[in-house]
Each structure stands twice: as structure tokens, then as C-alpha cells.
Nucleic acid binder design. Sequence first.
DNA 1: GGTGAGACCCAAGAAATACTTATGGCATGG
DNA 2: CCATGCCATAAGTATTTCTTGGGTCTCACC
Lengths: 313, 313
Amino acid sequence: MAHGMDPHRLLVFREIAHAGSIAGAARALGWTQPAVSQHLRLLERRAGTALVLRRPRGVQLTEAGRILLDHAEAVATRLSAAADDLDALTHLREGTVRLAAFPSASATIVPAAMSLLGERHPGVDVRLREAEPPEAVGLLAAGEADLAVTFAHGGREPQEPPGREEHPGLVRTPVGEDPVLLVLPRSHPQAGPADRPVDLRSLAAERWIAGCERCTASLRQACRNAGFVPDVRHGTDDYVVTQALIARGLGIGLLPRLALDAFTAPGVAVRTVPGLPPRTLFLVHPREADRIPAVRAAVQALRDTLVSAPDAS
Amino acid sequence: MAHGMDPHRLLVFREIAHAGSIAGAARALGWTQPAVSQHLRLLERRAGTALVLRRPRGVQLTEAGRILLDHAEAVATRLSAAADDLDALTHLREGTVRLAAFPSASATIVPAAMSLLGERHPGVDVRLREAEPPEAVGLLAAGEADLAVTFAHGGREPQEPPGREEHPGLVRTPVGEDPVLLVLPRSHPQAGPADRPVDLRSLAAERWIAGCERCTASLRQACRNAGFVPDVRHGTDDYVVTQALIARGLGIGLLPRLALDAFTAPGVAVRTVPGLPPRTLFLVHPREADRIPAVRAAVQALRDTLVSAPDAS
DNA sequence: GGTGAGACCCAAGAAATACTTATGGCATGG
DNA sequence: CCATGCCATAAGTATTTCTTGGGTCTCACC
């Protein structure tokens, strides 16, 4: 009862109606005449009524045929529209990418990449949602984002046994490194010439301002390697807040270059620290998402932006 | 490009979207899982983009998938509507019959049959068009009528060689006979008792009023058989006009019983004439029109009306 | 932490459908 | 009156479609 109508036959019937004859429809389809004739016969048998009257010069639609043709046209229109829509998506005339990125990337490389993508494919729409890496991965897992820009400190997750992904089905590819820099008050005694590296061991007695959970872990690890335990006094994810505290002499801290590219407070000095491992930048997306043209294009734009950026390794 | 989208696959995709998984769609369709999987694979290959993301618990639609689902729903709705419409036509809840009939039938048996059909199938709509037999057949041949009620004088066409139909593709089935009666002025000397037949030979000296071309031919033939040539003074197709002339004594004439059933003028007398051949009533329709349920029902209603009518042979 | 269940894929064979070839009827038109 | 065009049927072939029988991966449950 419900959609027992064979849509393929319906389209063949439409050809018959357009051509005005069975033989004409066969020519239009590149088939032989009996092929079309059989389709019509089966369609009429299922319909329970004649759809056409066989006339000497071709066929003439019955009332049932006229009604069926109406539906056939609607179906053909929809199929055509579906093909057009898919074509627009695959050729990037349309498409939406829901992108999740952490704040310092959202303020630097992401806008640059979005701009690049917009030049290449004006129809593709990127919707950015700011999220720290764990939340971003959660959005991907929940299907609420298509692509995420994340980072991790150290070349590899320290606590994760390799082979066991935190979220299965997601692929994470490194796309660059973001050096971690020392941020001091401008008046700090160690704030010598800008191009002079600072030894971490000389900062064992400082008060520290820590960032997010994983950044703090990275800081503690670096200090352990340098032979001391940092005196962490304040904690904030926000690199503007961090620098405000530092500028007032309330401590010193480590910030990645992306954060400093986004914003550097006038009252702070930035120095390199030899041996301090950079954080790695990743693109994360569901395993099959690179089969989505818009996502693939967004990935490419992000990679191209990172390659041309000075901080890419 | 245009409707390269396989509608069958589109419906399978719709099942996947509804079930939320490929295996679920397979269960809903009564298929195995790989069957559905292959449909999806081919659909995605043609689309050029992923339509779903394979997740552990099933699949999730991509943007392209959501758009395609929208079209799939529209197609499914149309197919269902098409099936419903055809079902209504085959079960005579709907339908239209364009009926052509000559005037005296249109005034008698046709309204009765339409009434009967209306009782049996209230949804079926009959559109009557009054037409003399030759015109009615022309309407059928032109596809402007579905069914015609016609008549012919004599058991067979006198001038037609048998086997050569006047309009190929039309079938003509006799459904009854309509006696031809003598109509006289009430004051006419031959207007004796109503049940007394009148011999045609006694009317050789009368003035005659003839009807249509074929009716006139029939009159001349009958008179020839009776041994005289009628003195035809007036001619009209209209049985009301004919009777008005007769009532005023301007002549006498022959009229079929259906015409007199429709209307008998007060000033005329009606008598039987032995040996006068009746006219035959026919139903005519395109050869395959009996495969149209509404036409078949209309034919049946007309036959049933004629069987129950007193003048049916 | 194995282990079973559920969801997916691939490859190859079986079943069903779709199309072609071959032939004949019927109506039209030079 | 024969040639042409349109349609139907029947049987054979070919292609599509579905199943069978492998395998991987993740999750949930002992």
C-alpha cells in the first residue's frame, strides 16, 4: 500500500508520456521498444487500471495516467534537485563546517584559515566554536562539530598508553608546533636582551602563574627536569589575565607563541627558554570526515595557513 | 547530471536514516546488512561525498545526508500519494467518465444509469455530452470522450462491408433495441384504438416528417418494403419539433420509443407498425477502455438500466 | 581484562530483475 | 497493396541485486 510504486518504472512512464509513444520513449532512453513496453505493462498491472490507451500513432494518457504523470514529474524534479544539491556540496559551492578551536588558535590561525577558505570557496560556511581541546573532542564525539583544532604538550601524551585513543573513531594529525615562551615582567632582572635565552634553573625561586590543567602539568614537568618544583601562586586559562598578573609583578609564566601572537601586554617581556618542549598542534576529526569535501577543504586551508605561519615547525 | 540519482537507492538511504543504522535498515527491509551497505556505498560514490559517518552504535548523517534525506522524504511522500491516488481510481472512490449520448437517450436511460452509478460509487463523476452517434464516435476517436451511447437502424450497417469498422480501435457492443413507432395526429382517421397495429401500406398517401439522415433512410427503406415512396415534406432531428408538426396535422412520422418516453405531445397518437425494424442501441468505447474501472462501472450501470427498462429486447 | 554482541566492511557466488532479440498483429499512407 | 510505424508477446542473455561467509572494531558485561 504505502509507496508500493516502483519509482524507476514511474520515471519510465514519464518518458512515455513525454514522448507520446512507447517507441519514442525507448529511443529517448536508448533502449529497445519491448523494454519500455514491459515496464508499462508491469506498472499497469500494479496500478490495476490502464494508464494509457494504445492508439495507432502512439499512446494517449488515461485519467489515471495523467494523475500518475503529475506525481512522476514531482519525483523527477526532486531527484534532479537532490543531484544538484549534492553536486553543489561536492564542488564546494555550498557546505558548512562546524569548527572547534581553542582560544589562542581562534584568535590567530583560525581566522586566517577561514579567510583563505573564503577566498577559495566563497560558498563554504565555517562556524567556529571556541573550545579547549577536551571539550572540542567531546563536541566531535557528540557529532556537534566536524573538525577541531587542539594541542598537546610534549610530543606524546605522557599518561596515555599508545594505541588506546581517548576517543575512538577520531583521527588526530599533528600539523605544527607552538613554542612555549617565558613571560616576565618588563622590569624583571632576567629580562635582558630579547634574543638572549633564559635558563629555567635560574627561575627556581620565582612565583608562577599556571594555565590550564595540561599546561600546568607541562610546566611542572619542565621544572622537574630543571631540578626544582615551581611555586604556583595563580591559575588561569586566559592569556590576557596571565599577562596582566605578570605585568603587575605578581609572578611569571609560560605562554605559547600563539597566545602571544594574539595578544602581548605592554608590561611584559618574552624570552625563549632552551630545552622547553613546544606544544604540538593537531587537527582532529571523525575518521571518515575527510570524505566530506567541505571538511577536507577546511583542513587544507588550516594546513596551508600553518605552513605559511612563522611558528610552524 | 539531471536526475542521475537512483530513486531506489534514495529510498534505501531513507530507511537507513530512519533506522539510524545500516543493520537496522536491513532489518526493516527484510534484507541482510551487506545489501543495504552496498546501496549506501554506491550512493556515496555517485554523490562524491560521505552521506553518513560510521559510528560504533550506528551511523550519523552528514550535512549532505541531511539534505538528501529531505529529498528522499519528498520522493517517498509522492510515491505514496501516487499509490493512494491509483488505489482510489481502481476502487472507484474517484474517477471521471466523459460520456457522449444522443438526445433521447440523454433524456431517459442515461440519467437513470447515472443515478444508479452514483448510488453504487458516489465518488465517480460522469460528465455527459449530448451528441448524435457520428459526432459521439468522433469524440471517442479524438480522445474527448470515454464512452458513447449510439444507435443504428437495422440490425447491421447496410452500406458497410463487414470487418471494416468506421473507426478502428473502437468497440461497439449492442445493448438493446428501441422500437420505432408511428406518430399521428390524434384526429387522424387511422388513430383507432391504441393497441391496434397500423399497416404501413395504408399510409402511402400521407405527408411525412423525417428525422435525421439515418432515420430518414430507415423510413424510406420501410416504405419501399411496403411498396411506396413516402412524400417527405419536413425534416428535423428534434422529436419535440416533430410532434408539434404532427399535432398540427402537417404530416405524420416515425419516432423511436425512447424519444416518446422522453416526451409525448398531447395532440398526437402513437401506434405500432408491424414489421417495422427497431433501431439498435450500442455502447461504444476505445478497445482498451474497459480496463479503466470507472468506464467499466459506467458500462455496467448503463447495461443494468437497459435490462430493467421495458423496451430492452 | 577477556569475551560476547552489535555494527560495519569486503569479496565472491546465487538469485532475481532488466534488457535484447525475434516475431507477429494492426492501422496508416503513399 | 505493400511499406512503414507502433505495439505485444515469448524466450534468451546480461546485468544488477541480494546473500553467504569471511574479517575488524568498539562497547559492555562479567
